[in-house]
Computed example of a mutant assay.
Amino acid sequence: MSTKSQVLTLLMKQAPAFISGEEMAQQLSLSRTAIWKAINELKKEGHLISSSRNKGYRYDNSDVLSAEGIRLSLDSETPKLSIVVLNASESTMKDAKLAAINGEPANTLIVADIQEAPKGRFGRPFFSKAGSGIYMSMLLRPNQNFEEMAQYTVIMAVAIARAMDDLTQVQTEIKWVNDIYINGKKVCGILSEAMSDVESGQISNVIIGMGINFSLKQNEFPEDLREKATSLFPETEPTITRNQLIGAIWNQFYRILTQLPEQAFLEEYRQKSFVLGKTVSFTQAGVGYEGIATAINDHGELVVKLQDKTEKVLSSGEISLSSINPTL
């Protein structure tokens, strides 16, 4: 761990209290000069650190993404994560794929302050702004069969919804299969991709990515998105940091994984779904359909009853809902 990382971690642990430079130097076995240099570097990166001649240094609430801040928000039961924080990324999904190819370990998390070419499912672009969102991807090595792949997106959706509800007292909803909504507007999109082992036929790597609108003000969205998208804090100042939300999301995600094969998370997913009972339109294999979404099965697939009373079972990779309307 670098000197700067050690100093930042200690300041964050001590917050909101002051800690003297002398005590920091003793705890970290560093010189006072090294402490001073590290603090100046952290300030240049945007961290808010108060100083007092009599009291020392205090870390003030700063919404600067950092591996140290994320780690301090992780539960002891959550696996140790290898965390990479970037100022900018073309795509954290691409970064995670490269990490997989390069043999990086499981549970490698890549987080970016801004994503310069963000894309969701089917290559759709979405809006990104520095300092106002969370753009991250996780590399997993599950060694599971492909039919289990869909559940990762469902688990991730439940984990994000739980974390947002717990930390911000909002009421999230889920649009099947991969979008989180607040007050009828999209706040988060999730994307899962698998890499397979040809010989075993199993998934060798899973990459789960997401883009979360954190503190983007409503009037900052492009005009064509203002009625469709929102953020966790669209009008007020954030009451939590992005690091805290990131930690809470992965705490929930790994908590659900440890409870498998129990299906309790699926019931949560169903209860939060605003698609069930609605008339939905979709295209499958180039053919348009309309019907009532009647269920989400144990594989996370959507069951739709068509007008001719037959059923279509929709997997996440096959279709995109084009419209959702109340059933009359």
Score class of each variant (00 low, 15 high):
Val187Arg: 08
Leu48Thr: 04
Ile249Val: 15
Val275His: 00
Gly211Lys: 04
Gly209His: 01
Ala17Leu: 05
Ile324Asn: 02
Leu139Thr: 09
Gly189Trp: 04
Leu48Ala: 07
Ala285Gly: 05
Thr33Asp: 12
Val7Gln: 11
Asp166Ala: 15
Leu30Ala: 10
Asp224Ser: 03
Ile203His: 05
Leu302Arg: 06
Phe233His: 01
Val170Lys: 15
Ala112Lys: 00
Thr108His: 13
Ala38Cys: 08
Asn107Trp: 01
Thr241Arg: 01
Glu193Asp: 12
Glu235Gly: 06
Tyr254Trp: 01
Gln151Trp: 10
Ala67Met: 01
Glu318Asn: 15
Gln26Met: 13
Val187His: 09
Asn213Ala: 11
Glu311Thr: 12
Ser82Gln: 14
Phe265Gly: 00
Arg255Ser: 03
Ser5His: 04
Val280Cys: 02
Gln169His: 15
Pro16Cys: 06
Lys43Leu: 05
Phe221Thr: 02
Thr294Tyr: 10
Ser66Leu: 10
Glu147Cys: 13
Arg58Lys: 11
Phe233Asp: 01
Ser2Gly: 07
Ser215Arg: 04
Trp250Ser: 08
Ser316Val: 12
Ser231Tyr: 02
Leu306Thr: 09
Ile180Lys: 14
Val303His: 10
Glu193His: 11
Ile114Val: 00
Phe274Ala: 00
Ile212Met: 14
Lys4Ile: 15
Ser29Ala: 13
Glu262Cys: 00
Ile319Trp: 05
Ala159Ser: 15
Asn183Pro: 07
Lys129Glu: 14
Met210Gln: 07
Trp36His: 07
Asp113Leu: 00
Gly201Ile: 06
Ile49Tyr: 01
Gly103Ala: 04
Pro326Thr: 11
Lys272Phe: 03
Lys94Gly: 02
Tyr254Met: 00
Ile207Phe: 07
Leu276Asn: 02
Thr92Phe: 10
Ser196Glu: 13
Val85Trp: 03
Gly288Ser: 11
Pro105Val: 07
Arg162Trp: 14
Glu235Met: 09
Ile249Leu: 09
Phe221Glu: 02
Asp95Pro: 05
Gly211Arg: 03
Ala248Val: 00
Met93Ala: 05
Met156Val: 08
Gln263Ala: 04
Asn40Thr: 02
Thr108Met: 12
Ser128Pro: 09
Ile182Leu: 12
Ser82Phe: 11
Lys44Gly: 09
Glu199Trp: 08
Val304Lys: 11
Lys55Ile: 03
Lys185Arg: 12
Pro16Val: 10
Ala99Met: 10
Ala112Cys: 01
Phe253Pro: 03
Glu290Gly: 02
Val85Ile: 06
Ser31Ile: 05
Ile207Arg: 05
